[in-house]
Design a protein around this nucleic acid. Structure first.
Lengths: 141, 141
DNA sequence: ACATAAAAGACTCTAGTTATCTTTAATTGA
DNA sequence: TCAATTAAAGATAACTAGAGTCTTTTATGT
């Protein structure tokens, strides 16, 4: 029971794209290098993010990826759902209605998701840039 | 990304054991029947619960499983940790220190685990028995 | 010692994740 | 219009974790 690597990469990639100068696009090649992934693999992740409307893609010579002009406030949950899909962590094995166990599990899960929905990538980026502007610090996002 | 079936079975099994008359033991055969599992498979789950100290086991003729005399207040998280192990849902793929993404993910996860730690099986059992004492209700725990 | 029941070990099967490689489709610029 | 570029899609392979079975061993009570 772990979040997939893809979700991990997706979050880092989103941060990377958000830190680009306004309006800039970036290709999968360059993004892949930073995380030491094969471009084709990262490409699939980027396609998912695109389909979820978190970023926009344009093929062709001056193409690449950029932030979506529409969805401004992207949350952690948005990214997670884009990659993993919107699913429940727990489903009662007995498939009956009104399972009290399932209810408790779902409530707890909701606590986590609520927090993940409240946490915006914009806030994260702010903290990262702040961190980088401090005296001694390594590249870490 | 889902809780394992084993966790599911473990929770249902714990409820079953807790609902036994005080001091009673129950064998893996009978427990397995209720959930339509093979005894050997459920046995592994029960062994994990035993090693975690949530239940006690005695082999031999009048043996079986019973609640632990020591750990009285078993939480959902206790059961989950017994089966899945105490691990994190998210580990930064870049393996660097102070990853802000990891921090957010861990905080959110903590929200869920806190709730799971607060939710005791005893409370759950109470609600189930209450549910069963009402006019129209199906067997559902 | 014998019957019973849990524990441990070896093993299979399956599904999902993690990739890679190749082909196709869309866009730009000459 | 044609060539270069870049994303998207498809097929496939390798790996891993989870799910489950079967067999053997260990512990307990009569």
């Amino acid at each position: 029971m772990k979040y997939s690597n893809a979700t991990n990469y997706a979050l880092h990639t989103m941060v990377h794209i958000m830190r680009l100068p306004e309006g800039n696009t970036i290709g999968v090649q360059e993004l892949a290098e930073k995380q030491k992934l094969s471009p084709t693999y990262l490409s699939k992740i980027l396609t998912k993010l695109t389909k979820a409307g978190l970023i926009e893609s344009t093929p062709g010579v001056k193409g690449g990826y950029t932030l979506s002009r529409f969805q401004k406030d992207v949350s952690f949950l948005d990214v997670i759902n884009a990659i993993e899909g919107d699913t429940n962590l727990f489903n009662c094995s007995l498939h009956h209605e009104g399972c009290q166990i399932e209810k408790v599990m779902r409530d707890a899960e909701e606590n986590m998701k609520e927090e993940l929905a409240n946490q915006l990538l914009s806030g994260l980026v702010e903290r990262i840039e702040e961190q980088h502007s401090k005296p001694i610090s390594k590249e870490a996002d």
